[in-house]
Design a protein around this nucleic acid. Structure first.
Length: 563
RNA sequence: CGAGGUGUAGCGCAGUUGGCUAGCGCGCCUGCUUUGGGAGCAGGAUGUCGGGGGUUCGAGUCCCUUCACCUCGACCA
């Protein structure tokens, strides 16, 4: 690109309303621009970085034996009704109607359509295995877009889908994708962790996430480096405590005027939070249910949904709480509740607990398991940093991550829903076993910038740098400089580099700063040195400036670029 | 969806108890001077003050309403 004639600009100051370093730097570098909340323009330089990321992913997909195609983004609504996900996605789906009033949606993910597509090609066990992928724009009406490209409402996703005879075949297909993902992220030089995760609305048997390690990440990762344990906080298993050996006392009521929160009552009773029970009233698929966790614990809604076997879980509104507990919010307890009661394992190990009294300004002390009924117990809380689980083999600590990729073993869920079957060698009709695999190139881009920036400049990993060589003409009024720069520009273009010629009529300082901001990998400065037949080479990653003869420049540049 | 906040020039911002022709910095344009890390001087252009309605002699400023955006929470593959 030739800057004097290209679509190129930079901003000197941070932009208001961009809350992340990557959002700000990419905006300031003129690579992206926000149009609406969670909707961005991809400007030439940003597009080039995206294309490099996509090219890496595409290469690894093809190497893993996957075949590229492209689905529409505009999809008849009934495709998602068939799988039951129209309801599951709910308001986060962009929905519209055509002129005839027929309902369409903008696809948030494409499992259904791929199953429909596969139905045409898969009839026999001889047609399997099969792996397909696409790069396609996804639409999700996120309640709260944020962090630049990290949480957006329109974004490109590379999604791949595998189709196999059985679980064994799925295992092989899954592994091939898993390895391809590792190669792709390694090539982008992203610092990432692989964690086990919730299968959530996707459904299925196994989910793993590739998480770019980064302080602004929205996911909390539970890790132990020594044993390699890594799980998303949503699913990280908690240790199960030994039952208390305390002798059970008889429950008695204690007036606690105005003491509503755990903080209030711990102060009031002078006891630690571990002696208290939090009774949380939720609506599980619309029906009230109580969830019990220890006072010092936080509920994991993902785990709670699994225990309760529901698809939707939301905190009950105050009216419902008051109705089921017959008390104001803040005094709920398990005794006498006429709704399902789900207890965390830690509750099952407690004795002489302090709970709400289901009565205004009243708590009950010395409550024991025999004093109330539990519908089911399980692990429904979030693990704390420093705890050890059997799986982790040692104390865990937390990191934050940006989910840049995920892999799902889906099993038969979508095959059954979308009628995707094959005939096996015994002439039996069997559902195809599916897997699905996603990568967000835009999140990769944002994560790379988050992990590689300093002093208001971007330091690109070699493989994704949108500009490999930037030629800076110090003075565009100096004909010799211009001629030399033009010659090098021509030569680098012929060599196939991603090259930029800064021939703008600006002061040198402005050009140097802009090249730093956009993160040109190698800078060739054509300035006063041309009088002696020399130009300067400087890598973004180094402060050293190297003078070379003009004639030697192409060879030296090729060497530095590793070409 | 709940709570809080912000909308004034391309970008970042100021604008007093309502009061003259709405300002500042950067950017932009012209000229001169300069030319190796965001130059200097002089001159200049650019505004539906988010939109609509109202109060008032007079509204960027007060009131009502609406939209957009941001933060925290809720929610969410």
């Amino acid at each position: 690109m030739r800057l004097s004639r290209d679509f190129f600009y930079t901003l000197r100051e941070d932009v208001r309303d961009e809350d992340s370093a990557s959002g700000n730097l990419l905006t300031r570098a003129g690579m992206i621009r926000r149009v609406a909340a969670g909707v961005y323009m991809m400007l030439p330089l940003g597009l080039r970085a995206m294309e490099k990321i996509e090219a890496i992913i595409r290469e690894e997909m093809v190497r893993a034996g996957s075949v590229e195609l492209r689905m529409p983004a505009l999809i008849p609504e009934d495709v998602y009704i068939a799988s039951g996900r129209r309801e599951a996605f709910g308001a986060s789906m962009f929905a519209l109607r055509d002129r005839g009033g027929r309902p369409f949606v903008l696809g948030p993910t494409h499992e259904e359509l791929f199953a429909v597509a596969a139905r045409q090609a898969i009839h026999s066990y001889k047609d399997l295995p099969l792996s397909l992928f696409q790069f396609q724009t996804k639409y999700r009406d996120e309640p709260r877009p944020r962090f630049g490209l990290i949480r957006v409402r329109e974004f490109v996703m590379k999604d791949a889908y595998s189709f196999d005879l059985d679980l064994e075949g799925l295992g092989r297909s899954y592994q091939a994708m898993f390895d391809a993902y590792k190669r792709a992220f390694d090539r982008m030089e992203i610092d990432y962790a692989i964690v086990t995760a919730d299968t959530g609305a996707m459904g299925g048997l196994l989910s793993e996430e590739f998480q770019a390690l980064c302080p602004i990440g929205e996911d909390i990762l539970v890790m132990n480096e020594e044993t390699g344990y890594a799980a998303n906080l949503e699913v990280a298993a908690c240790p199960r405590p030994e039952p208390s050996s305390e002798e059970h006392r008889a429950p008695r009521k204690v007036p606690t005027p105005g003491q509503k929160t755990i903080e209030d009552v711990t102060r009031f009773f002078g006891e630690t939070a571990e002696r208290f029970v939090k009774t949380l009233i939720y609506l599980a698929d619309g029906r009230p249910a109580a969830f019990l966790v220890r006072g010092d614990h936080e509920i994991s809604e993902v785990k709670a949904m699994k225990l309760a076997g529901c698809h939707e879980l939301e905190m009950a509104p105050p009216e419902v709480v008051e109705e089921v507990t017959r008390a104001p919010v803040g005094f709920a307890g398990p005794i006498g509740l006429e709704i399902p009661v789900y207890a965390d394992y830690s509750i099952m190990a407690m004795a002489n607990m302090i709970t709400g009294g289901n009565e205004a300004d009243m708590h009950i002390v010395d409550v024991n398991l025999e004093d109330f009924s539990v519908t089911a117990s399980g692990d429904i809380r979030q693990i704390h940093e420093g705890e050890t689980t059997p799986e982790s083999g040692g104390p865990v600590h937390f990191r934050r991550g940006i989910e840049i990729g995920n892999t799902f073993k889906l099993g038969e869920k979508y095959s059954m829903a979308m009628d995707l079957f094959y005939t096996d060698s015994d002439n039996q009709r069997r559902p195809v076993v599916m897997g699905s695999y996603g990568i967000g190139p835009g999140r990769c881009l944002a994560a790379i910038v988050e992990q590689n920036h300093a002093d208001g400049r971007i330091f690109w990993p070699r493989a994704v740098a949108p500009i490999e060589v930037a030629i800076v003409v110090v003075s565009t009024k100096n004909e010799t400089q211009v001629a030399v720069a033009e010659g090098l520009y021509e030569s680098f273009q012929q060599a196939g580099y991603d090259v930029l010629l800064d021939d703008r009529d600006e002061r040198a300082g402005i050009k140097f700063n802009d090249m730093d901001l956009i993160g040109a990998w190698l800078r060739v400065t054509v300035g006063r040195g041309v009088a002696e037949g020399k130009v300067e080479l400087k890598l973004a990653s180094s402060d050293e400036v190297e003078e070379v003869a003009i004639a030697d420049a192409p060879a030296r540049v090729a060497e530095l670029l590793g070409r």
